[in-house]
Design a protein around this nucleic acid. Structure first.
Lengths: 245, 245
DNA sequence: ACCTGAACACCGTTCAAGT
DNA sequence: ACCTGAACACCGTTCAAGT
């Protein structure tokens, strides 16, 4: 069953004592180890450091051994994507049935931000991908359930679910892309606001000049929260309209 | 003046007949040519095809000549970012003073989508960057002006301006990332929804199953429009509240 | 003052040859 | 059945040597 999810298959269920059993377990263990090492490597060295060669050396195997665990680098990337969602589901934990759909979505958004910004390199690689794996399926069911509970018809529920998750991941990816620039370039990029925008001519850029302080003070998490709340408000508005309020 | 914007300086203004004149013009012309070629290359070959070596060969110069035009690849990327914004400003054109701030923002969003999705490779490279260049400054002034006109105080105007542009570019980047996958991988990724999600067990994934058709039918532009409208609604709501309505 | 060729330290990926 | 070494076709970037 589910032969397309080898990267997250349960460890050696079935075939008791069969010859395949031990090999499969050890294969999954090595897969796990490779994925774990990739996270460590990504956190430590950034996007440029996450290469097949460095990863192989990190877990002390030959590069070509990695190509027996993953068909190519893209398959590794999808495994990292699945694992990211697993971590998020873990952190979300069990949901009290009393919790409103809005608060569930806020919790998902919060956890997503935390995990995705902790591993910026992996966010850059995975933020637009679809794995079809078990963790992703569970996340889809959870999120879609929120918008369905809100009282939206299927078309609108799906549209808002995708708006919610794509917006959230897109903003995480933007922040991640900045954080994974070389420290030097990153500082240059970040200080542009004060370096350039506070010295513009009052005549040609009156509005920008009037907003200089606010421009350099705004922070990424506030932007993220604002976007999330904007989508939630839209969901509430659509839901109440379809209930005929 | 403005020595940090060499990539977009006007062509040889001042120093009439000076020795620097001709050299500067020709330098800017070669810079222009390189940037134009990079767009053509990116559109034709995708992200993987946009390398310093291939770009040099495209404009028939040695690779090292490129490094006399751009300090490094990042400087080329920033030039491409500026040029993207220039194209967007061009397409936006002149604004009728009668146009509401909402409609101006809708037009900017529309043009941004069109340009960014036309050059997905460049969107991936630039969507989170800040250039500090003239085109970017003009765009900031234009967008910030909309939110200020709406009646928001500076802090809220800046917060919503950044939410608007970061959300828009993040969604464009997500779409761009999908479009720049190898055609094979891309089809795999896109068909995941029908391949995996329509075969889930009714018992474990009831909500997903009830939304199968909608999940495979949703399109990226509708998601983008929904997100943009969500931010506009928030702006309207904040504006009316601060006017004491 | 500009251009050229060659090199450095990397990539992802493949494959024949070993055990 | 697994592992190793070497290779292929690339990267971004630098630099001495030419004109």
């Amino acid at each position: 069953m589910a032969k397309n999810t080898s990267t997250a298959a349960p460890e050696g269920v079935g075939e008791p004592g069969g010859g395949l059993h031990g090999r499969r377990v050890s294969r999954n263990l090595r897969l796990e180890a490779a994925v774990n090492a990739a996270f460590a490597l990504a956190e430590r060295e950034g996007l440029a450091g996450l290469t097949m060669r460095r990863l192989a050396q990190e877990i002390d195997v030959d590069v070509t051994a990695l190509y027996r665990l993953f068909r190519d680098k893209d398959e590794l990337v999808l495994a990292l994507c699945e694992r990211t969602i697993e971590m998020e589901l873990d952190e979300i934990g069990d949901l009290a049935p009393t919790e409103s759909w809005q608060d569930v979505l806020r919790r998902v958004a919060e956890v997503t931000w935390r995990v995705q910004t902790r591993f910026p390199a992996i966010t850059e690689l995975t933020f637009a991908r679809t794995t079809g794996g078990p963790a992703e399926r569970q996340m889809v069911e959870l999120l879609l359930g929120c918008f369905a509970r809100a009282g939206l018809d299927p078309t609108r529920a799906v549209l808002l679910y995708r708006t919610f998750i794509d917006t959230a991941l897109g903003l995480c990816a933007g922040t991640a892309a900045l954080h994974s620039l070389q420290p030097e370039v990153r500082t240059k990029d970040h200080t542009t606001w004060t370096r350039v925008y506070s010295h513009l001519s009052e005549a040609k850029f009156p509005v920008t000049r009037a907003h200089t302080d606010a421009l350099s003070a705004v922070d990424d998490k506030a932007i993220y929260d604002t976007a999330v709340e904007a989508v939630l408000s839209t969901a509430e508005s659509w839901a109440s309209r379809s209930r005929g309020v």
